[in-house]
Deep mutational scan, measured.
Amino acid sequence: EINVTSHGEEQAKHWIELAKRMNLDVEVEIHGDKIIITIK
């Protein structure tokens, strides 16, 4: 399980695309200006 804290939408999209390509599950939480991505 990987937790990524992203401070930008572009960076977040990059991680989500990467996870989808690798067929991994992704959870995205938004806390103000921080985007927390959990890849399982």
Rank of each mutant, 00 (worst) to 15 (best):
I2Q: 07
G8V: 13
E1D: 08
E1L: 11
V26Y: 09
E1M: 10
K13M: 06
A12V: 14
I16G: 04
E17H: 08
I16H: 03
D33S: 09
I30M: 02
N3R: 11
I30Y: 04
Q11G: 06
E27H: 11
N23M: 10
N23H: 08
I37S: 00
A12K: 07
L24Y: 07
H7S: 09
W15Y: 03
E9K: 10
G8N: 11
I16D: 04
I37H: 00
E1F: 11
I35F: 03
M22K: 03
V4K: 06
E9T: 13
E1G: 08
K40Q: 02
E17N: 05
W15R: 04
A19N: 12
S6R: 02
E27Y: 13
A12C: 15
A12H: 06
H14E: 03
N23K: 07
R21K: 10
A19T: 05
E1K: 06
K34N: 04
K34L: 11
D25Y: 15
S6Y: 09
E10I: 09
K40W: 07
H14W: 15
G32D: 11
H7R: 07
D25P: 06
G8H: 09
E17R: 08
D33T: 06
I2G: 07
V28N: 00
H14A: 07
W15V: 02
I16Q: 03
D25S: 14
E9Q: 06
G32T: 04
M22S: 02
V26D: 00
H31E: 06
I30V: 06
H14Y: 14
L18E: 08
D25V: 14
L24N: 01
N3I: 14
L18I: 09
D25R: 14
L24M: 03
T5V: 10
K20N: 14
Q11E: 08
N23D: 05
W15K: 05
K20W: 15
Q11S: 09
V4Y: 04
I2T: 09
H14M: 11
K34W: 14
M22I: 04
G8W: 15
E29K: 09
H14N: 05
T5Y: 03
I37L: 02
I36V: 06
K13F: 12
I37D: 00
G32C: 12
Q11L: 13
D33G: 03
E27S: 12
W15L: 07
I35Y: 03
I39K: 00
D25M: 14
T38V: 05
E1W: 13
E10K: 06
Q11P: 04
E17F: 14
R21A: 13
K34G: 04
A19I: 13
I30D: 01
K34C: 15
V4A: 07
R21V: 13
R21F: 14
I30R: 05
H7N: 10
E17A: 09
